Amino acid sequence: MFAFFNKKDPADMDDVQLDTNRIPAHIAVIMDGNGRWAKSRHLPRIAGHKEGMNTVKKITIAASDLGVKVLTLYAFSTENWKRPTDEVNYLMQLPVSFFDTFVPDLIKNNVQVQVMGYVDKLPAATQTAVNNAIEETKDCDGMVLNFALNYGSRAEIVTGVQKIAQQVADGQLTVDEIDDTTVDAALMTASLAPYSDPDLLIRTSGEERISNFLMWQIAYSELVFTDVKWPDFTAATLKACIADYQSRDRRFGGIADNK
């Protein structure tokens, strides 16, 4: 089963030493705590989201420099539409300003942008910004920066099941042929293969739940929960989380040879 982080602030840990041969290939992050970060400073919630985007820029470069292959960030869920209209409108504008200023740095660092989720349901300007960033970075072959935008794992699984059912109905697939590989290929992370499943899932701000994120893909991921709010998350925090990951014995349901 999953092991859980002890929740002390990893940003307080100095001189973290990492095994460069055991850097997680795919790190997924639930970027939580922007609103509470702003509230604690008597600022509007949108100030937290703005600072959170600055953190995305820093952590993207840090992860790329460490040799991470895929960094998946939970940017906006299918449930986030329930938030106040002003906040939602601001969140929809963020990708526009983010990509407008950051794409040159992504290209410089050989980072490719991918986006998973129901992008066609986003405002036109947001769709345009997303599609332009994908197009402009398509030739980059370093780390993939994968945004989960208007994404929800249950909706993803339903869509995947519908896709498989249609293949069966069309005679392209038999029921007996459906297996893990079939499901993997029907999900929104299929394009990330062979790194579709995160090795490490990090959630910031002290909450300890998955919140409808990559539920199929994290079956054997290591989970790290930290009290650090996303705007305060630094390259040092990331390294500390990876160090915690490297301290674990990943058995994938089996037992260690010496047990």
Rank of each mutant, 00 (worst) to 15 (best):
Met1Tyr: 10
Asn6Gln: 02
Lys7Arg: 09
Lys7Met: 14
Lys8Glu: 14
Ala11Asp: 10
Asp12Phe: 13
Asp12Ile: 13
Met13Gly: 09
Met13Val: 14
Asp14Arg: 15
Val16Phe: 15
Gln17Pro: 02
Leu18Asp: 12
Arg22Ala: 15
Ile27Pro: 05
Met31Cys: 00
Asp32Gln: 10
Asn34Arg: 06
Asn34Gln: 03
Arg36Thr: 03
Trp37Met: 06
Ala38Gly: 09
Ser40Glu: 10
His42Thr: 13
Leu43Ala: 05
Pro44Val: 07
Arg45Cys: 06
Gly48Ala: 08
His49Ile: 00
Glu51Leu: 11
Asn54Met: 00
Thr55Asn: 04
Thr55Lys: 01
Lys57Phe: 01
Ile59Asp: 00
Thr60Cys: 05
Ala62Thr: 09
Leu66Ala: 00
Val70Met: 07
Val70Gly: 02
Thr72Gly: 11
Thr72Met: 00
Leu73Gly: 06
Tyr74Glu: 00
Ala75Ile: 13
Phe76Ser: 03
Ser77Asp: 06
Thr78Leu: 03
Asn80Lys: 09
Asn80Trp: 12
Trp81Met: 04
Pro84Trp: 05
Thr85Leu: 12
Asp86Gln: 07
Glu87Asp: 08
Asn89Met: 10
Met92Val: 02
Gln93Ser: 11
Leu94Pro: 04
Leu94Arg: 01
Leu94Trp: 07
Pro95Met: 02
Phe98Trp: 09
Phe99Asn: 08
Asp100Ala: 07
Phe102Arg: 01
Phe102Thr: 04
Val103Pro: 05
Val103Cys: 03
Asp105Trp: 10
Leu106Asn: 01
Val111Phe: 00
Val113Met: 08
Gln114Arg: 15
Gln114Tyr: 14
Val115Phe: 10
Tyr118Trp: 10
Val119Trp: 01
Pro123Met: 03
Ala124Leu: 06
Thr128Gln: 06
Ala129Ile: 10
Asn131Cys: 03
Asn132Met: 12
Ile134Gln: 02
Ile134Trp: 07
Ile134Val: 14
Glu135Gly: 13
Glu135Leu: 15
Thr137Glu: 03
Lys138Tyr: 04
Asp139Gln: 15
Asp139Thr: 15
Asp139His: 15
Cys140Tyr: 13
Asp141Lys: 15
Gly142Asp: 00
Met143Leu: 12
Val144Thr: 08
Leu145His: 11
Asn146Ala: 10
Phe147Asn: 05
Arg154Ala: 12
Arg154Gln: 13
Thr159Pro: 00
Thr159Glu: 04
Thr159Met: 10
Val161Glu: 03
Val161Gln: 00
Val161Arg: 08
Gln162Ser: 09
Lys163His: 11
Lys163Pro: 00
Ile164Phe: 08
Gln166Cys: 01
Gln167Val: 03
Gln167Glu: 09
Val168Tyr: 14
Asp170Leu: 13
Gly171Tyr: 02
Gln172Thr: 04
Leu173Met: 07
Leu187Asn: 06
Met188Tyr: 15
Asp197Gln: 15
Asp199Phe: 13
Asp199Arg: 14
Arg203Gly: 05
Ser205Phe: 13
Ser205Val: 11
Arg209Gly: 02
Ile210Thr: 01
Ser211Met: 06
Trp216Tyr: 10
Trp216Lys: 08
Ala219Gln: 07
Ser221Asp: 01
Ser221His: 10
Glu222Leu: 15
Thr226Met: 05
Asp227Pro: 11
Lys229Asp: 08
Pro231Gln: 05
Phe233Asp: 08
Thr234Tyr: 10
Ala235Pro: 08
Ala236Ile: 11
Leu238Tyr: 09
Lys239Leu: 05
Cys241Ala: 09
Ile242Asn: 00
Tyr245Ser: 04
Ser247His: 07
Ser247Gly: 06
Arg248Val: 09
Arg250Pro: 05
Gly254Gln: 08
